[in-house]
């Protein structure tokens, strides 16, 4: 019985190495200079860590700007998506109207479509109303495309909320807005935090919308910014590595602190679909 277990552990450990080693390798070459990268074994650890790679890409390029854009666009889109999705889910599950099921169906269908099939008309629509190269186009697109999944994740939780509390609140003359913002929304904090995390990951990593709608350096987010930036630093692996590390670090740090919530979010998002 002992031997098979040793073998199974080795399989699992090998997969863990496959999953994590490329990132360790990235961290390692982000701290090397070109003589070390091209002259020595790629598997060697950096002799003396070249932190100046990080300083250089942060100050030379626009990485700081991209980073800041990613942060505010992500935060604003996530807040808007989760608020709007909560309102829709509240109206669909709690309020009395005949069209609630068909409307829910519409949102569900929105989840299935490939974004690339809508890209050209979106581009020409934004062009006509002057929203090309305007971050507002990115915020509303992120919101629209993340609403369906967010509603799907919220739905189950809203169905399970007890009705007694809101009945009592309405009896006492509480308005719908007060009921929603003061009573229902605070009760949904656990599921809201799950949707916040899943939205955060999607928006932070999104590429094609920004790549298509934004052309000015001052509005680019990290995913698109690093893509152009790396183009210029073709041969400077240390700089490329440092840039990539800066772009992936925020979510990796978030993962250390919120791994269970992130796991919840990722599985909820998948299995509901």
């Amino acid at each position: 019985m002992k031997l098979p277990y040793v073998f199974l552990y080795m399989v699992l450990a090998l997969i863990a190495v496959f999953q994590i080693y490329p990132l360790i390798w990235l961290l390692s070459f982000s701290l090397k200079d070109n003589t070390e990268i091209f002259g020595k074994s790629p598997f060697a650890l950096p002799e003396s860590p070249k932190w100046e790679n990080y300083v250089k890409v942060w100050t030379d390029g626009n990485i700081g700007t991209y980073f800041f854009n990613s942060v505010w666009i992500t935060v604003l889109s996530v807040a808007l998506t989760v608020l709007l999705a909560s309102m829709v889910t509240f109206a669909i599950t709690r309020m009395n109207w005949k069209l609630n099921k068909p409307v829910l169906g519409l949102f569900m269908v929105g989840y299935m479509i490939p974004i690339h099939s809508a890209l050209i008309p979106l581009f020409s629509m934004f062009n006509k109303v002057g929203l090309i190269d305007n971050p507002l186009s990115i915020v509303i697109t992120y919101t629209a495309y993340n609403l369906p999944l967010t509603i799907m994740i919220l739905l189950g939780f809203y169905y399970s909320l007890p009705r007694e509390m809101e009945e009592a609140a309405i009896m006492d003359g509480c308005s719908i807005n007060r009921l929603f913002f003061k009573i229902i929304l605070p009760m949904t904090t656990p599921v809201v935090s799950t949707t916040v995390i899943i939205n955060m990951i999607f928006n932070w990593n999104e590429f094609v919308f920004v790549n298509t709608f934004i052309s000015s350096e001052k509005y680019k987010t990290l995913t698109v910014g690093i893509q152009n930036f790396i183009g210029q630093y073709m041969t400077d692996w240390g700089a490329i590595g440092a840039t990539l590390m800066i772009s992936v670090l925020p979510l990796l740090i978030a993962f250390i602190f919120f791994s269970d919530r992130i796991i919840d979010g990722i599985t909820a998002g998948a299995v509901k679909g």
């Binding site: 863990a16 990539l244 992936v248 990722i266």
Partner: peptide, 21 residues
């Protein structure tokens, strides 16, 4: 949790990293 880590990265970062791999 270790297995899940690559899932957190953007496809652009993954692509750039694997270009180097």
């Amino acid at each position: 949790k270790i297995y899940l880590i690559p899932m957190l990265l953007s496809s652009v970062a993954i692509a750039q990293l694997w270009l180097k791999v």
